[in-house]
Design a protein around this nucleic acid. Structure first.
Lengths: 206, 206
DNA sequence: ATTTACGGAATGAATATTCATTACCGATTC
DNA sequence: GAATCGGTAATGAATATTCATTCCGTAAAT
């Protein structure tokens, strides 16, 4: 009885279910990124995940719930990969380069996740809880910029929110251009783009 | 007979039809921008345009055709407003400022059009012809950057396509942030953002 | 043996598109 | 100038399709 009770939350059964959940979310991310949220029927998601439609609905109450789960999962992964083990309260050029490199790695290794997060039409679907998850990434970055500006490392020309929007937009823009085949990005291009972004935000050296 | 024949293509009848076409496209832009392409049923578009659904289908073969028409129309308007009466082959800081000012004006006066053009999920719908219209804007801008780099006005750090993608992305990013209420953009903010973008692309003064 | 998970056909609601009908407009006739 | 007519435009209810969700027979697990 004790073991049975334990297995409800920690046994191999639970582990397998948890894995299948992830599997469905992963599949959803891919198909959503390709066809948009309204644009993808549920059955293709199930197929991509290798499960029946009925099974999908065992794990998620509705398409909307799945969208929110996928969104939170993706945002969380981006946040983890960007911020983990980083001391944002000590800004430096090296920290900026690290953040840039991590962004690149994320966009390269999980292109669909990146694209999914940049899609427009989330916001009509998202629960307040999902929406607030956005802040978990933006607030630390904002603090970093504020401190950088106090330090004199970054120019205070741009208010922090604006600097972040500009930087983020530029990054998204170059990857969007690559996805649409308007250009190809070499490693060298990415370094040059990074330096250009830095020039836009930094204080000129004395 | 001659008069009758003429009125077929040039009379008040034709003019009214042409106006109604525009009216429907305008309405489509607005509703699409708000709810996404897959997300908006056809009847609401007709309602917004003040016509019956059947009428809409008299003017456009399908929802897809309407999307393409709206896209071409929007791209054309953006292009006209950005490039008309401008000598892109003589780049200068003043020309850059003019382009920036025109972009602002467009984004401010036709926010739905701007948002519609930046939506992700066009590309699965667009005909090759619609798609090629993209080039009509990108190629002149590319030429301008090339000449600016030859001049020494712009840094040749970034290859032209990359410079444009970066700049465009930054611009889209700050307006997206404003739309999502992450920040508010004052006129002063916009000037500062402009200068930051210039720093990213220009050659430093000697 | 019983419970739980699975799959995918079945269901009903939502949506794109069509079509039979009506309203309108300009031309022609008296 | 008024009345009639032919044809085109407009309409929205009806149809066909697509989609989210459910349900039940089967398989797996315990």
């Amino acid at each position: 009885m004790a073991t049975a009770s334990a297995s409800v939350t920690t046994g191999p059964r639970a582990a397998k279910e948890s894995r299948k959940r992830e599997q469905i979310i992963q599949a959803a991310l891919q198909v959503f990124a390709e066809h948009g949220l309204h644009g993808t029927p549920v059955p293709p998601i199930a197929e991509q995940a290798g499960v029946g439609v009925g099974t999908l609905y065992r794990y998620f109450d509705s398409k909307e719930a799945l969208i929110n789960a996928a969104f939170c999962d993706a945002k969380q992964r981006l946040q983890d990969r960007l911020l983990s083990d980083l001391d944002l309260l000590n800004p430096s050029r090296a920290l900026f380069d690290t953040l840039w490199a991590r962004l690149i790695a994320f966009a390269r290794e999980e292109p669909q996740t990146f694209q999914f997060l940049e899609m427009q039409d989330h916001h009509s679907y998202l629960t307040p809880e999902s929406r607030s998850r956005e802040q978990a990434l933006l607030i630390p970055l904002g603090m970093m910029v504020i401190i950088g500006q106090r330090n004199g490392l970054l120019s205070d020309r741009l208010k922090p929110d604006l600097a972040i929007a500009l930087f983020w937009g530029a990054f998204v823009g170059i990857f969007k251009a690559e996805r649409l085949n308007y250009l190809t990005l070499t490693d060298d291009d990415l370094k040059r783009a990074r330096d250009a972004c830095w020039l836009a935000m930094a204080n000129p050296p004395l």
